[in-house]
């Protein structure tokens, strides 16, 4: 009976992880295929990676993406953390419902709507589209993710810690800097990384808000994917996966070391 349940569980785990990682793994394997054809294995080769280095447009788009991600994640982390403090600490204030609604909505709002509405705003305000419009758009839609992460940390936080600091003579600003901030820092870092990742990943919102000179990496990849499967895309994908994978391993190791 018990053994049967264990077997079923193990089987389910294997099937689940095969589904999750199988397609990604295939992509990685075929990026080293010497043949241009997807289904024919023509031997191991790194020629597609070498080709990427020659692609100036691609390298420019990587640079744009990194800049956008960095700037937008900083803004989103700042705004998102303040919003989380407001939601977690200020109790019921007027227009709280609108505020909470505006924060949670982008979490699930289809990207086409966000992208279109932001574009119309930039057009109406007469702002020329480019890097900074993408930054503003990304800072808007990633902010809510920071808020959710930080807010859940604040909610699981003993209020008495802040009261104790005030009781011992620390004013509100002092209390925030010496007690609250150090204790929610892991959540703020996690929120920042989440915002960074989401920005790097976004195609739709960037497409609406980008200008002619500001093509991001996903936009570049997308325009190539539309042309069909190619080993070059496999190679870009593998590099992107590798960066994310290394970052994840790094932070897993970091958080593990922190836990001890």
């Amino acid at each position: 009976m018990r053994a049967g349940a264990n077997l079923a569980r193990t089987g389910m785990l294997i099937a689940g992880f095969a589904l999750l990682y199988g397609p990604i793994l295939l992509l990685v394997i075929y990026s080293f295929n010497a043949s241009r054809l997807v289904t024919v294995w023509g031997g191991f080769s790194t020629r597609w990676y070498a080709a990427l280095l020659q692609d100036a447009q691609l390298i420019a788009s990587v640079r744009t993406s990194l800049l956008v991600a960095l700037f937008s994640a900083v803004i989103a982390t700042f705004n998102g953390t303040l919003a989380a403090i407001a939601l977690a600490r200020f109790g019921r204030f007027r227009t709280r419902t609108i505020f909470a609604g505006a924060i949670y909505a982008p979490l699930v709002m289809p990207e086409v709507i966000l992208g279109l509405s932001l574009l119309l705003l930039f057009v109406a305000l007469g702002i020329e589209r480019g890097l900074w419009t993408i930054v503003a758009a990304h800072a808007t839609f990633t902010m809510c993710f920071v808020t959710v992460v930080v807010q859940s940390r604040l909610a699981g936080f003993d209020r008495a810690l802040e009261e104790a600091a005030m009781d011992l003579g620390a004013g509100p600003a002092r209390t925030f800097l010496t007690i609250t901030l150090p204790l929610i820092r892991p959540a703020i870092v996690a929120g920042f990384l989440l915002a960074l990742t989401l920005s790097l990943d976004d195609l739709v919102i960037a497409s609406f808000t980008a200008g002619p000179g500001s093509t991001t990496l996903p936009m570049r990849v997308y325009s190539q994917v539309r042309l069909g499967v190619s080993p070059e895309i496999n190679a870009i994908s593998t590099l992107m996966l590798a960066v994310v994978g290394i970052a994840l391993l790094f932070f897993a190791a970091l958080s593990r070391g922190h836990g001890d």
Partner: peptide, 12 residues
């Protein structure tokens, strides 16, 4: 990991 890439993998 990139959403676009995960969708792209299924084309292959």
């Amino acid at each position: 990991t990139s959403f676009l890439i995960r969708v792209y993998a299924w084309i292959t």
